[in-house]
Design a protein around this nucleic acid. Structure first.
Lengths: 211, 211, 211, 211
DNA sequence: AATGAATGAGGTTTCATTCAT
DNA sequence: TATGAATGAAACCTCATTCAT
């Protein structure tokens, strides 16, 4: 029903100058903002509509259901992170370096898209049926992009073998997921992305490296 | 109106010999189970009532509002973890060892109380007003129990100084928080608590230790 | 969710004197009245609530969905007509007489329950899924109670054989269904039930009898 | 985006001589199809638009409101059946024969236009105001085309007098209305129009004929 | 003619909460 | 304590209709 087909938000979309700002993107952006703050179930269509500046009924031109809206947001996040992982995959790097590059790029994306990341990691469970299954697959793909490196790193001796690869994977994955909380927070000076990412990579590197 | 707070389950509760299961605890347990699975906003009073085996109107004998129910759950979690931290605080241990013991005991508690931990880390934001402020303080107390060790460890040279203490703290905190996801998961053999905790302590230790 | 278990409305329910008027029946009666007049899709829950004198949300104590409400209404009608048919079935009568008795008793019920009959014959298609399948079975049962007589009557020579039994059945069935429209109508004197039923039986009898 | 549906393919579309297939007819046909199946209230403008292959906003070039669309459909049906009745009226036939010819021709039309007939008999009540009054008049005209014959037939002794003319009329009218349900139905062989109509005429004739 | 975005009212349903019994 | 009926607000969603392009 909704035909709007707005680029993924990736650069290069800005081509046509007379291209009027796609309302689809505005809607998604509004939804991301509210859902990241209040969580999916507590976000009402009215909340999103208010932020976009239309009546709630009008939003149904852009999606067919609230759940579909969530799905689209998650999908965009998945596509962007998948692209990051694919690009790394094609590089010819030793496993540990590949792992740490993954940590670096992923963290950078999370820090640049904190709200999207929040939603990706906490709201997926509210999808149902086929959409849930699809999204769960995305989560597994993310995990595999890390576990592949871990396994290879254990095989070539650069990653410690005294801890099972599944646990190592979860540790790394958790560390990356949590980086979205590192800025935010009250008081004191904030840290810039580079500082945070460098710290995270150093910490993760020192924890998993074979000694 | 009734906050009946009958003994922690300790024996010797006057009349009824031995401990009689307090209905209050049954309600809290049911709420924890449902809220951990569906999240606070998606959990209805009816859900809890169904699990207790009572009509929803009856639940209001045990709490005054849904939010108060959540607050009590968080409060219990806070009290239990605070006790852990206080006990460690009283030990005379070098900072790094104290930090790792904190990681160890906290992880053990999280793994033994995965549902409570889920709620503690994800539903706190749904409190409002004074209750929110109070609970936020609990979160900060948890964080401080870790950051105190980090600061002291940097001072005595056992913890790396090339990374700001706030970032180190968040890294450790995040690792501990995430341990509740390590079991669960599909497939393969699961890991027992000791294995998980040993792995986590080793990883965190190797990452923050001065070299 | 709804535990109200109110008799089928059949006589004999009046047992317990302190039995407070069952609200269930009030709701069903209100729904029958509105739905018969406006049709199921055009009847809003609000319409029913207004007639009962409660807020629309309150009605959900009595049923779980609008469709279930319709189903219950149809179910009651089915049970009442089925009982009529079963009672006739047990009589030891020649087929044609049995058929005409069926026409008589069915017509009487329709004329005494015009609103229920309206709903039974026109709103069944708005059920979905399993409920639709069940209700469709009721319709077939009704049809069979007539076609059985027709077949038997053709066999014993009392019912004309120059017309296929299926067509005879549909003719009789249609005639009975339509009797609910005979009173109503504007102007002139109305006809009492006996007059109408006698006329119908005479007409149907003369049309299907073998000559 | 252009579904131009010009002419039946018949040559000579040029200056629009003869009839050119009016888009209007396509819309009406689509509406008849959907409304017959789902009923007027449950038929959305979007349903009709989808079947036409046009966006719903566009449909408002063909009618001013959903109700007007229904009115036009009923109007067409009325005009066609009225023509049938007028033609019969002009014949010089004895009343009973005229009645049975009416039954025959009407049934033929209903069977050839089952969807239109469905709408004519079930959706008229959803008209409002003046349109409702007008359409109600059509219904009465239909009824009178039958009752006139009945009255005349009773006068000349060919139609039974033991039953009030109003009841006879309703019986005949109901029988004709119901014939639209005779085909359809599951299983077995279907019946062709002639078979059905012959059966109906025979049955109605035998029921009303004076004996 | 056609589009598609927007409107605004109304639909069904859920739910935290209250209260007389 | 427990019940269950009732409330009233708010949730998601649909839809007939309008209108600038």
């Amino acid at each position: 029903m909704t035909q709007s087909k707005a680029g993924t938000g990736a650069p290069g979309d800005a081509a046509k100058p007379r291209e009027r700002y796609n309302r689809d993107d505005v809607v998604i952006a509004a939804a991301i903002s509210v859902m990241s703050e209040k969580g999916y179930p507590s976000t009402s269509i009215q909340d999103v509509a208010s932020r976009v500046g239309v009546l709630k009924g009008s939003l149904y031109h852009y999606f067919n259901s609230k759940e579909e809206l969530l799905f689209r947001i998650l999908q965009e996040s998945h596509e962007q992170t998948r692209e990051i992982h694919e690009r790394i995959e094609q590089l010819d790097l030793p496993p540990l370096e590949k792992l740490l590059l993954n940590v670096r790029r992923s963290s950078e994306w999370f820090l640049a898209n904190v709200e999207r990341a929040n939603i990706f990691f906490t709201e997926m469970k509210h999808l149902t049926g086929e959409r849930h299954a699809t999204a769960a697959g995305w989560g597994r793909a993310f995990e595999r992009s890390i576990s592949d490196c871990v396994v290879a790193g254990q095989a070539d001796g650069t990653i410690r073998k005294d801890i099972d690869q599944r646990l190592l994977t979860r540790f790394v994955l958790g560390s990356v997921n949590n980086v979205r909380f590192w800025p935010s927070r009250r008081s004191g000076r904030q840290f810039d992305t580079d500082t945070i990412v460098d710290a995270l990579v150093a910490l993760v590197g020192d924890s998993v490296r074979a000694r």
